[in-house]
Structures are given as C-alpha cells and as structure tokens.
C-alpha cells in the first residue's frame, strides 16, 4: 500500500496589511476604481495554505516629459504619446496598467526648471486622462522632491495617491504632505530587512497609518543584484507572516527602472552575439526581473515596456488560479 501523503500546511501567525490605492467618487476622489493590494496570509500564490485576497498589480511608469535617457526601445514603444503625459497615461491604461506611476522631472521639456505650478498642472491633466489610481514620484533630489510633491499632494487631495519616494534621508516632508492631503507613501530602503522595517517605523511614528504605507525594499535587475532584492523580499514576507508587524506592508518594487538601466536592455551595439535579438532580450530582461520578484512577494511592480507588462500580466493570471 502506498504511504498516505500528508500535504504540509504551514500555519502563519501574521498577515500582510491591505492597502488601498486611489479613491473613487464615493471614496472622496475621482478614480474610476481603487486598487487594493496586500492582505496575504501565506507565501505568494500558495492559495491552498491561506487567503490571498489580491493579486500583484502593475503600475506603468510614465514621465512628465520625454525621457531622453531611456532606451530607444521604450521611446519607440510609447512613440505617439511620449511627449504628453496625459496621453501617455491613457495609452498605458489601454495597454493593461492597473496603476499609473508618474515621475516628475527636474526640468520640463523646454529645459526649464520644473515648478510646483507645472507639476500641479501635469498631475491635473494625468488625473483627467486616466481613471486609474496614481503614484507620483519626485525627480529624486531632496529639495526638488519636497517642493514638487507638496504641491502635487495638494492638487491631488483626496485621490489617495502614493507619494514617493521616502528614504531615510528624506521622508518627513513627503509624509507630512501625505498626512495633510490623505495620501499614501512609498518607503524605500536599500535592500536590507532591518532598514526596511526601520523606515516603516519612522514614517508610522510621524502619524501616518500603516495602511497608507507601501514598503519598497529596492531590488537590483536580473544580473545586477536581483538575488539580493529577491532574498530581502522573501525574508520580509516571511517575517510578516511570522507576525513581525512592522514588516506587514505590501511590497512595491521597480523592476522596470532597474532592468532598463542594464546594458542588456539599453544597448543595441557592441554587445556579444550570444545575447541574441535586442528587443526580445530587452523585454525579457524586464519581464524576468519582474516575474522573479512576484514569486518573492511583490505586490506592486512598476514597469516600463508594454510588452513586458503583457507578459507579466499573463503570468500573474496563470498563477492566480485558486484551487478548489
């Protein structure tokens, strides 16, 4: 007689918090729908073991002006809309985005300094063009981030936008702006479990409720340190499931930005033949970075190429089959 196989089912004492991005009219905003992530009571896609109320979601990254430094492949993919963030957002929605991430630049298309007024107008137009919840990231310079994000937080009051990025060296103003206008924040730390946790605590200490914080532990791209990001995410998720409350935040990662920075995605010339077709490989570089991170526990993935988005969404659909 065969041995009876007893399927091991792990009992987890904790679960990830649910975080809702965006607000519909009933919820005080203007989005056509809001998106809730998190809530996991087990490891990614192990439906048999615990509740997994929400699948991972994809945010397509758009910029307030044509990002000249992006790979030509990306510029080509968004060619008709790349000069107009509103049209870009709309197109991104058509191409399957669940969320739109708008990145503000230091300078506008004319090379002049970006200002709070300009940023507000961009946000206004993007909000009008898409019904998806928005994430808005600053250009990544402390003073400029604070200046622009405070302004756009006011412009988007009530929309439950995710403001980013909060880093240890600069989070207070962004959190304050989120507090003032009912938004969420992205808490980013450099690939370390304890640092991730610590920044969540600091942000929470300022009075922002935990259901308004996404945890962004950063990652490297495929071939550029993805294994660090991957393991840190797995460890964070395990800690969350083991009941460590300050790690129980949904995870946001930016595989698009990371992968498209890699030479493998960016460059056409002067590369080994063994790398194969440029476009195919570049798209796969972003796709594989993203799918690996989903398996490690990512809840929101910020991506860039519409074809990668399609492939990752397909994979998510196939993984999102609940047994029984």
């Amino acid at each position: 007689m065969a041995e009876k196989v007893e399927i091991p089912v792990q009992k987890w004492s904790g679960r990830v918090r649910e975080v809702t991005l965006g607000a519909t009219k009933e919820e005080g905003g203007t989005r056509t729908r809001s998106v809730t992530v998190g809530g996991e009571a087990t490891l990614p896609f192990l439906h048999f073991e615990g509740e997994l109320p929400h699948p991972p979601r994809i945010a397509i990254e758009i910029q307030d002006k044509k990002p000249e430094e992006w790979s030509p492949l990306l510029l080509k993919a968004w060619e008709e809309v790349i000069d107009d963030p509103a049209a870009w957002a709309k197109k991104a929605e058509e191409r399957g985005a669940d969320l739109i991430l708008l990145r503000l630049s230091l300078d506008d298309a004319q090379g002049e300094e970006n200002t709070p007024e300009k940023a507000k107008s961009t946000v206004r137009r993007v909000l009008a063009a898409t019904g998806l919840p928005l994430l808005i990231f600053g250009p990544g310079q402390v003073d400029k981030d604070n200046e622009l994000l405070v302004a756009v937080a006011e412009e988007a009051a009530g929309e439950r936008v995710v403001l980013g990025v909060c880093e240890e060296k600069n989070y207070r103003t962004i959190v304050a702006a989120a507090l003032a206008h009912g938004h969420l924040v992205d808490s980013r730390t450099p690939m370390d479990v304890n640092l991730a946790k610590q920044l969540i605590i600091l942000i929470h200490d300022m009075g922002l409720p935990l259901d308004r914080i996404l945890m962004d532990p950063s990652t490297g791209a495929l071939g550029y340190g993805i294994e660090y990001g991957y393991s840190v995410m797995e460890r964070l998720r395990l800690a969350a499931l083991h009941g460590d409350t300050m790690t129980q935040q949904p995870i946001l990662v930016t595989p698009g930005e990371e992968a498209w920075r890699a030479k493998e995605a960016k460059v056409e010339e002067g590369i080994p033949e063994a790398w194969g077709d440029w476009e195919e490989r570049a798209i796969m570089w972003e796709t594989m970075t993203a799918t690996a991170l989903i398996e490690a526990g990512a809840d929101v993935m910020v991506m860039r190429h519409p074809e990668s988005v399609r492939l990752v969404k397909e994979a998510i659909d196939k993984l999102w089959v609940k047994e029984g």
Binding site: V150, T173, V175
Partner: peptide, 12 residues
C-alpha cells in the same frame, strides 16, 4: 494651515 503644517510636521 497645510503649508505650515507640513513644515511643522517634517521638522523644518
């Protein structure tokens, strides 16, 4: 209130 509030909250 919001403009100053942000500065009071973020410590500036």
């Amino acid at each position: 209130l919001r403009a100053w509030g942000i500065q009071l909250v973020d410590g500036r």
